[in-house]
């Protein structure tokens, strides 16, 4: 069994004494090479979790351990080596003058030698499918391409966990697809933990586990299939359930027996097919 990579123990956070709590008594663990999706409406505290993990913010109560190390002012530089983050706005995280400069930025910060940088730029750009754009300037790239470059920049420092903090929120459907494909390939190949933070339930289907946030608290934690059974509640906390699960419910309502909560079209069709053979 893989060990615990990230541990939140009773973590509470607020920006100042006058402000309401953004996170309240949040506890969870994330294992090595696990894909966890954190979902919730805007303002549910999900992005705050990401910023706490790599010490961009510190909790007032509770503690956070990354690979057994507590996140403190003194440990953040080590921790940021293990935790890679991609943010929401593709433009506001692109530092370099060209694609290769941007991928190099994180490595330069850590004093990695030029030979190693050149090699890793090649391999990480290949991993995200951006090899053809090594010398391209950012304003000639689409949002999805910029985000893939950001992922390459993170991979180049070989972190133990990659956090995508609403990295697809500003992209068009094709950009979103590009990122989700890239990410699922990476996760299966590179053996790193993955945390995707999103408000789109479509994007949690592939995750191993889902943490649903509501008003700063962990509302539910389970596998995707389990989460989707609670449609009414999900809608109540501002989320939307995928079409297949809605259809499955409508079928159940009129007496078609669906035993397993479907995650995609194929599963529902398969279920209907077995039903069809039995009748």
């Amino acid at each position: 069994m893989a060990g615990n990579l990230i541990e939140f123990k009773d973590v509470s956070f607020r920006y100042s004494e006058q402000d309401p709590w953004v996170l309240k008594n949040v506890t969870f663990t994330i294992k090595e090479d696990e894909w966890v999706a954190i979902i919730g409406h805007n303002g549910s505290g999900k992005s705050t979790i990401a910023k706490l993990i790599n010490g961009l913010l510190f909790p007032q109560e509770g503690e956070i351990l990354i690979g057994g190390k507590k996140v403190t002012e003194d440990s953040i530089w080590d921790i940021r080596k293990d935790v890679g983050m991609v943010f929401q706005n593709p433009d506001n995280q692109f530092v370099g003058a060209t694609v290769q400069d941007d991928v190099a930025f994180g490595m330069e910060n850590r004093g990695i030698t030029r030979e190693v940088m050149v090699e890793r730029i090649q391999s990480t750009l290949e991993a995200v499918g951006m090899s053809d754009y090594q010398f391209t300037e950012p304003h000639r790239l689409s949002g999805g391409q910029k985000q893939r470059v950001a992922i390459a920049g993170v991979l180049a420092i070989s972190p133990r966990v990659l956090i995508l903090d609403e990295a697809t929120a500003m992209l068009d459907p094709n950009g979103r697809k590009e990122i989700m494909q890239t990410v699922s390939q990476l996760q299966s190949k590179q053996g790193l933990a993955l945390i995707t933070i999103t408000h789109d339930l479509q994007e949690v289907v592939q995750a191993n586990r889902v943490i649903v946030m509501n008003k700063g608290e962990v509302w539910k934690e389970s596998v995707p299939r389990e989460i989707f059974t609670e449609k009414e509640e999900l809608r109540k906390i501002g989320l939307d359930v995928p079409f297949v699960t809605t259809l499955a419910d409508a079928l159940k309502d009129i007496g078609v027996s669906i035993s397993k909560e479907p995650l995609n079209h194929e599963e529902l069709l398969e279920e209907l097919w077995t039903l069809h053979l039995r009748t």
Partner: peptide
């Protein structure tokens, strides 16, 4: 997309008429 896959798999011809999910469920049944 779903209606097309369903029609293909079950050799049926449910038309798309901008129906609601509930209406579609009935048609499938």
């Amino acid at each position: 997309q779903f209606i097309a896959s369903f029609n293909h798999k079950f050799n049926t011809s449910i038309p798309f008429s901008n129906q609601s999910t509930e209406q579609l469920a009935k048609q499938i049944k």
